[in-house]
């Protein structure tokens, strides 16, 4: 998994490439938690994400809760497969998906 961060003032875009599973999810979790201070808009770019497991969903949920307190979180670029996972797991109702 690769994480590419682009910050523009209070906007932070994080591109996640590869697999977001039990092994890689804690890495994304700590990366995100370390970088969201003062961020109003967190955009997660999932255009290069191949797979997300329940551990990855948990990171999204946790970030969504944090960002609810200080701004908003947007998930964009998800592939059909990822969108299906969001749909099946009901995350489509929890996340702000573009």
């Amino acid at each position: 998994m690769n994480i590419i961060k682009t910050q523009n003032g209070e906007n932070l875009t994080v591109k996640v490439e590869g697999r977001l599973d039990t092994v890689t999810a804690p890495q994304l979790d700590s990366e995100l938690k370390a970088s969201i201070e003062g961020i109003k808009t967190l955009t997660l770019d999932f255009s290069a994400l191949e797979y997300i497991s329940s551990a990855g969903l948990r990171v999204l949920l946790s970030m969504q809760k944090l960002m609810n307190k200080q701004g908003e979180m947007i998930v964009k670029g998800s592939s059909a497969a990822i969108l299906e996972i969001f749909e099946v797991t009901g995350f489509i109702d929890l996340l702000n998906i573009e």
Partner: peptide, 10 residues
Amino acid sequence: YRHSPAVATM
């Protein structure tokens, strides 16, 4: 079919 979110999420 379309599912609800998991329990204990929100």
